[in-house]
Amino acid sequence: MKVSVAIALKDLGSMLRERTFVSVILLLIFVASFASVLTFGLLILYNPTYLNILFENELKIGVAGDAPILQSFFDGKHYASLNDAFYDFYAGKIDVILWLPKENLTKGSNYVKIFLPRDEVKSIQASIILKKKLLEYQDYLRKLRGMPAGGKLFVYSASGEELIIPNGISMVFKFIYVVLIPLMMITTAVIASGLFIDLITEEKETGTIDLLLAACKKDEIVSGKILAAILLPVILTPLWLLLLMLNGVEIHNFFLVLSIAYSFSFLMISVSAFIVTFFKDRERSQLVFSLVTIGIIPVLFIHPLTPSSLISRLAAGTEFGIEVVPLYFALGILLLFVSKKMVRI
């Protein structure tokens, strides 16, 4: 055991010396920050009401055709013909044209054609405002046609106060718990598994394994390599969880979350151990590992009891499936044990 720990510490020490550890941390930070860019970028563009950045008054709308009710909803300039509206559109006097040749109020359908500027941020803003107004217009026509109102959810606090909840708030919540946390778990596991393949193949391909074998037993070397690969997620997982908490993300069931993340890393390290045993050299082992990872990752998101779904739910505070957590941990440990026996160097 002492020898294995020394081998593991030697490998981790060389990672620190080469500043590989810095690139690992950088990778995790990049994954988190780009996932944030993506979410907030999409929110800004497609759900600006959530961030209170919808500039409704700045949008100039023109309505062409015989549609007085539609026009009243948009408070837009009226054009008798589409041609006149186009002249103002291309001159930049209006940003949007709504064209409804003849309005059908009490019966039939209203086909509204909308002309928007291409490749302008304004067209995104306009689409969102138009959608909101068109829904109001639809509600108005439904009322005219004698249909009942409904489809509303009123939200209250425990003290009975009515609350206004911004649209799209679930997108941010789901991004953190359903995308970011599983993504960090997967990245950490993939890093640890890639490391294990490198630790084994580098010794073999550079011939240093012979020197090691002269001083230690095969079993001790493999245990040391597995230990080094395990220590990486053991250190990194609480680190990124704490960083998330420092950033204001509430992590429920901390130790269960940690346990699931560790179990997944152990499973992936075992997968890499199987691969490196069969394919032996780094080139083929890393290639096969990449191919296998591409197949495994999407499967993690399809069932409520996969590690990815479990970590999302547990971190968010829902304990459905909690009984599976120790099973995953036991499986991870068992597979590591099998890997230790199986890996040939």
Binding site: F89, Y90, V112, I114, R118, L130, L134, L141
Partner: peptide
């Protein structure tokens, strides 16, 4: 009662 179709024009 309402159907919509958008067209994007280069200006």
């Amino acid at each position: 009662p309402v159907f919509v179709k958008a067209e994007f024009l280069e200006r």
